[in-house]
Every structure is written in C-alpha cells, then in structure tokens.
Amino acid sequence: MSSAQARARMVERQLRRRGIRDERVLEAMGRVPREAFVPAELAGHAYDDAALPIGESQTISQPYIVAAMCELLSLDGTETVLDIGTGSGYAAAVLDELAADVLSIEVVPVLAERARRALEETGHAGVDLRVGDGRLGAADRAPFRAIAAAAATATVPPALYDQLAPGGRLVLPLGGRRGQRLVRLVRTPEGVAETSSIACRFVPLVNG
C-alpha cells in the first residue's frame, strides 16, 4: 500500500468513521504526509491508529487526536494560530493547511530542528517555529484567535488565555498522569467558557 493510500484509509477509518465532520480538517489530514514527521524506522507505522515515539521522551499524537484538536479550533482559514509543543511538527503542518498563519513553539531544541526540516520538506516552511517555553506563549504576536497545546497541564497557563483574542479558542489537555480531558476554552466577555471535553492522554507540558 502506498503512503497516499494509507493516508486516505486513515482519514476514512480513523477520522470520518469516528465522527470528525469538518471537511477542511479531513482534507488537510489527507494532504499532509505523516511519514515525513516520524523517525525513519517507524515510517511503516506512520498511519497506525496510535501515538508514536519521536525521541526525547516525546511522541507524535494519534491521528484522531490531531484531527479532533483541529476540529475543536473551528478554523476558517483566516486565523493566526499559536501551536504549543511542536514535537514532530505534524500538527503544525496540518494547522498550516487550515489557517492563515501558524506560530509554533517547542522547548526541546533538537526536536525543533527536526521539525523545521520536516516542515520545509513538506511545503510548510511558512510556519514560524521558535524554541522556548510554550507556557509563556508569544506576546509579540498576540492576540491569537486560536491556540492549541499538545501537552498536558493541570491548569491553564495564564499567558495563553491572556493572549486569546475575544471569542478566541484554546484547545489543550487538562489533567495529569491519572487522567486528562481535551477541552476547548473560549474567551468570552463573561470570562472563560468550556465548550467541549473528551478523554485523552498527552505527555506533560514542560518549561524551558
């Protein structure tokens, strides 16, 4: 089976059949070559229904989780998106297909460099990739209409919520090793509003 065939099967079986309905997300996931973002020895498993190790005690998230996060962000293509925890760069590439501009932050320099190469090789060199503490966000580019964090934290980092535009969406896993929820938080005039929650499992958010 070719990579294109495996990708199409992943979209149909792992995403569409599980309830991902946003056609823009499904199309983006069908375009980005996931095999370019995993270690070479795992390329044959790129479209498995699972998270995969990428080194430095980090993983590339399960395809369904990436799609679910993107769908929860409700992107229309005009947004500037902040991506916390670049990791492999795969989610940043998918977001780059869905938004006008993507800024991604990774705390581990070696992962950031690998992700940068993969993004360039797959036509996503426009992603602004920085090395730093994702919990602090990127005040120089705020406010953001959408922020996604691919690492778990017990509480919402204040800087991330502060950098949301009015009506902006923040999607992140809340909790610890015993249990996490993938939530969507919306900045409203009355304060934070939680609008969605599903069970998940992410590596913890770490500082610089």
Rank of each mutant, 00 (worst) to 15 (best):
residue 110 V to S: 15
residue 142 A to G: 03
residue 77 G to W: 03
residue 139 A to R: 15
residue 133 D to E: 08
residue 92 A to C: 07
residue 106 E to C: 06
residue 125 A to N: 00
residue 118 A to R: 15
residue 138 A to R: 13
residue 114 R to M: 08
residue 107 V to H: 13
residue 92 A to K: 07
residue 98 L to I: 03
residue 118 A to E: 11
residue 97 E to P: 00
residue 118 A to Q: 09
residue 123 G to L: 12
residue 98 L to V: 09
residue 89 G to R: 01
residue 111 L to V: 04
residue 82 L to S: 03
residue 75 L to V: 05
residue 114 R to A: 09
residue 70 C to W: 03
residue 119 L to T: 15
residue 138 A to K: 06
residue 140 D to V: 04
residue 141 R to A: 10
residue 138 A to W: 15
residue 80 T to I: 04
residue 125 A to L: 09
residue 78 T to Y: 07
residue 101 D to V: 06
residue 131 V to C: 12
residue 140 D to C: 01
residue 119 L to R: 08
residue 76 D to E: 07
residue 99 A to H: 04
residue 68 A to S: 06
residue 140 D to I: 05
residue 105 I to E: 03
residue 127 V to I: 00
residue 137 G to W: 03
residue 109 P to D: 10
residue 136 L to W: 10
residue 142 A to W: 00
residue 78 T to M: 05
residue 140 D to L: 06
residue 150 A to G: 08
residue 121 E to Y: 03
residue 124 H to T: 15
residue 120 E to S: 13
residue 123 G to H: 15
residue 141 R to T: 03
residue 79 E to Q: 07
residue 115 A to G: 15
residue 145 R to F: 02
residue 118 A to L: 11
residue 151 A to L: 11
residue 86 T to S: 13
residue 92 A to G: 08
residue 103 L to M: 11
residue 85 G to I: 00
residue 148 A to C: 07
residue 103 L to Y: 13
residue 116 R to M: 04
residue 128 D to N: 12
residue 141 R to K: 11
residue 82 L to E: 05
residue 114 R to K: 15
residue 124 H to E: 01
residue 69 M to Q: 14
residue 118 A to D: 12
residue 142 A to N: 02
residue 100 A to D: 14
residue 150 A to T: 14
residue 83 D to Y: 09
residue 135 R to D: 11
residue 110 V to F: 06
residue 138 A to N: 13
residue 93 A to F: 01
residue 144 F to D: 07
residue 119 L to V: 14
residue 128 D to P: 04
residue 68 A to F: 02
residue 99 A to L: 02
residue 69 M to A: 10
residue 100 A to I: 03
residue 69 M to I: 12
residue 101 D to A: 13
residue 123 G to N: 09
residue 86 T to H: 07
residue 121 E to H: 07
residue 135 R to G: 15
residue 111 L to E: 07
residue 143 P to W: 05
residue 81 V to K: 02
residue 74 S to H: 13
residue 87 G to K: 01
residue 72 L to D: 08
residue 117 R to D: 10
residue 88 S to M: 08
residue 104 S to W: 02
residue 141 R to I: 06
residue 124 H to R: 15
residue 90 Y to E: 04
residue 94 V to S: 00
residue 68 A to K: 09
residue 80 T to C: 05
residue 128 D to H: 11
residue 88 S to K: 04
residue 110 V to H: 10
residue 117 R to G: 08
residue 80 T to F: 02
residue 113 E to I: 09
residue 134 G to Q: 09
residue 117 R to W: 12
residue 113 E to L: 12
residue 73 L to R: 05
residue 115 A to D: 12
residue 134 G to H: 00
residue 90 Y to P: 01
residue 147 I to L: 01
residue 113 E to N: 08
residue 93 A to W: 09
residue 149 A to V: 14
residue 119 L to K: 05
residue 94 V to P: 01
residue 78 T to H: 11
residue 85 G to Q: 01
residue 96 D to G: 06
residue 75 L to Y: 06
